[in-house]
Measured scan of single mutants.
Amino acid sequence: ETGKELVLALYDYQEKSPREVTMKKGDILTLLNSTNKDWWKVEVNDRQGFVPAAYVKKL
């Protein structure tokens, strides 16, 4: 879809709370919100949640 910003997972991340999502290094995720410098909201496999901003980079 146009207008979607994507990020690349630089590291594996295992969710530690229900508000977070698990990702694997190399995953491409849809970026939903990056206003917080530490935690970015992403969508992966129809799930939305937060990942550490340092673990992903914008494509």
Rank of each mutant, 00 (worst) to 15 (best):
Lys24His: 10
Ser17Arg: 08
Lys25Phe: 05
Ile28Arg: 05
Gly49Asn: 01
Gly49Ala: 03
Ala53Gly: 05
Asp38Met: 12
Met23Trp: 01
Phe50Leu: 10
Val42Phe: 00
Tyr13Gly: 01
Glu1His: 13
Glu15Val: 06
Glu20Arg: 04
Val42Met: 02
Tyr55Ile: 09
Val7Gly: 14
Lys37Gln: 11
Gln14Gly: 07
Ile28Leu: 08
Thr30Leu: 14
Val44Ile: 15
Asn36Met: 09
Gln48Ser: 12
Lys16Gly: 10
Leu8Cys: 09
Val56Phe: 05
Tyr55Thr: 09
Tyr11Ala: 11
Leu29Lys: 00
Met23Tyr: 01
Ala53Tyr: 02
Thr22Ser: 15
Arg19Gln: 12
Lys58His: 09
Ala54Lys: 14
Gln14Arg: 09
Val21Met: 12
Tyr11Val: 11
Asn45Asp: 14
Gln48Leu: 07
Glu15Trp: 05
Val56Gln: 00
Gln14Lys: 12
Ser34Lys: 07
Glu5Pro: 10
Leu31Tyr: 02
Lys4Ala: 12
Trp39Glu: 04
Phe50Arg: 03
Leu6Asn: 06
Ser34Gln: 10
Leu6Ala: 06
Ala9Val: 10
Trp40Ser: 03
Asp38Cys: 14
Lys16Leu: 09
Leu32Lys: 04
Asp46Trp: 06
Lys25Cys: 08
Asn36Arg: 08
Leu31Glu: 00
Glu1Gln: 14
Val42Lys: 00
Leu32Met: 07
Ser34Asn: 09
Tyr55Met: 13
Arg47Ser: 06
Leu29Ser: 02
Gly26Leu: 02
Leu59Lys: 04
Val21Ser: 02
Phe50Asp: 04
Leu10Asp: 02
Lys58Gly: 07
Asn33Tyr: 06
Pro18Ala: 11
Gly3Asp: 12
Asn33Gln: 10
Gln14His: 14
Leu10His: 03
Tyr11Trp: 10
Asn33Met: 08
Gln14Trp: 13
Lys41Cys: 14
Lys41Asp: 04
Ala54Thr: 12
Val56Thr: 04
Trp39Leu: 03
Val44Ser: 15
Val51Glu: 00
Asn33Glu: 14
Ser17Ala: 08
Arg47Asp: 03
Asn36Tyr: 08
Lys16Ser: 10
Asn45Ile: 12
Ala53Asn: 03
Tyr55Arg: 06
Thr30His: 11
Asp46Ile: 06
Ala53Phe: 02
Val56Asn: 00
Pro18Val: 09
Val51Ala: 03
Lys4Pro: 13
Pro52Lys: 03
Lys57Ala: 12
Phe50Val: 07
Arg19Phe: 13
Pro52Asp: 02
